[in-house]
Computed example of a mutant assay.
Amino acid sequence: MRRADRLFQIVQYLRGGRLLTARMLAERLEVSDRTIYRDIADLIGSGVPIDGEAGIGYLMRSGYDLPPLMFSRDEISALVAGARMVRSFGGAAMALAAEEALAKIEAVLPPDLKDRPAGVAIHAHDAGALSDADRAMVDRLDRAVDRHLKLTLDYRDAEGAATQRIVRPLGLWFWGKVWTLIAWCELRDDFRMFRIDRIASAADAGGFRSERDKTLSVFFQREVDHCRN
C-alpha cells in the first residue's frame, strides 16, 4: 500500500469516533506500530485534529472532513481523455471503473470547474477494433497480473500454429489497436509477448512469486538496451 493511501485509511478509521490504538491500526494496515506513530505525527503536523497519545490510543475530533480534491484544468482534461480511452479500448471492467472514477471526480470539483469534463474535446472510438471476447480477455489477464497467477494459454502464433504455454503474466501493453500480454514463458524460459486476439483461452495454473530476474522492470530495461544497441 502506498503511504498516501495508508494515511487516507488512518483518517477514515479515526473518523469512526472510536478510540483506536496504534497496534489496532497497525494490524488493520499490516505495518509496524512505529510506522503508525510516524504517520499519526505527520497527520497531526499537517493539521488533522487527532487527539491521543502512544500507549493509550487516538481519535479524531468531530466535524473534520477531508478537503476536496483539487485539479487544474489541464489535469481534468488529462483524466477525462484517459478515462475515455480506457472506456473505448480497455476491458469491460476497466471501462466501468473509468466511468465510476469520472463520476467521483466530477462530484468533488468546485463550481467553477464543474463543466470542464464535458468540455474536453478529446474523444476515443474503437470502431469495432475490440470484440467483447477481447475486452473480457483484457480483464482476465489484468486480474492475473494483479494476483500473481500463472496462466495456461491456448495460443496461435502469426502463422496460425496452435501452441500451449504456461506463463507468468507481468503486464499489458496497448499498441493503438492491439493489446499484448507481457509474460515470462516457462516453455521458452524467457520473456515473451502474446497478442490477446490470438489467445483462445486462459486457465489458472497456480500462483507464483516474483523473482528478481523475471519482472516487468527487467523486461523494460532489456528492451531499452536492445534499442540502444
Rank of each mutant, 00 (worst) to 15 (best):
R3A: 14
A4M: 08
D5C: 13
D5I: 06
D5P: 07
L7E: 11
L7N: 10
F8P: 00
Q9M: 07
V11K: 11
Y13D: 12
Y13H: 14
L14M: 08
G16H: 11
G17H: 06
G17R: 05
L20M: 13
A22P: 03
L25E: 00
A26E: 01
S32N: 11
S32M: 03
D39I: 00
D42S: 15
D42M: 09
G45M: 04
V48Q: 07
G52N: 10
G57T: 00
Y58K: 04
R61H: 12
L66F: 11
P67I: 03
F71I: 07
D74M: 09
I76E: 02
L79S: 08
V80G: 03
G82H: 02
A83H: 04
R87T: 02
F89R: 01
M94W: 14
L96Y: 13
E99R: 15
E100H: 11
L102Y: 12
K104S: 13
K104T: 12
K104Y: 11
I105S: 03
I105E: 11
A107W: 06
V108I: 14
P110N: 03
P110K: 03
D112E: 15
K114D: 06
D115W: 09
R116L: 12
P117W: 04
P117S: 10
V120Y: 07
H123S: 15
D126G: 05
L130Y: 04
S131K: 04
D132N: 13
R135W: 10
R140A: 00
D142N: 10
R143P: 00
R147A: 08
H148I: 01
L151E: 10
L153T: 08
D154L: 10
D157K: 07
A158F: 11
A162I: 01
R165L: 06
V167D: 05
V167P: 05
R168S: 13
R168W: 09
P169T: 04
G171M: 08
G171Q: 05
L172Q: 01
W173A: 14
W175F: 14
T180F: 11
L181Q: 01
A183V: 07
E186F: 08
L187G: 03
F191P: 06
R192F: 08
R192D: 12
F194A: 09
F194G: 05
I196V: 15
R198E: 06
R198N: 06
D204S: 09
A205S: 15
A205H: 09
K214D: 04
T215M: 07
T215S: 13
V218M: 06
R222C: 08
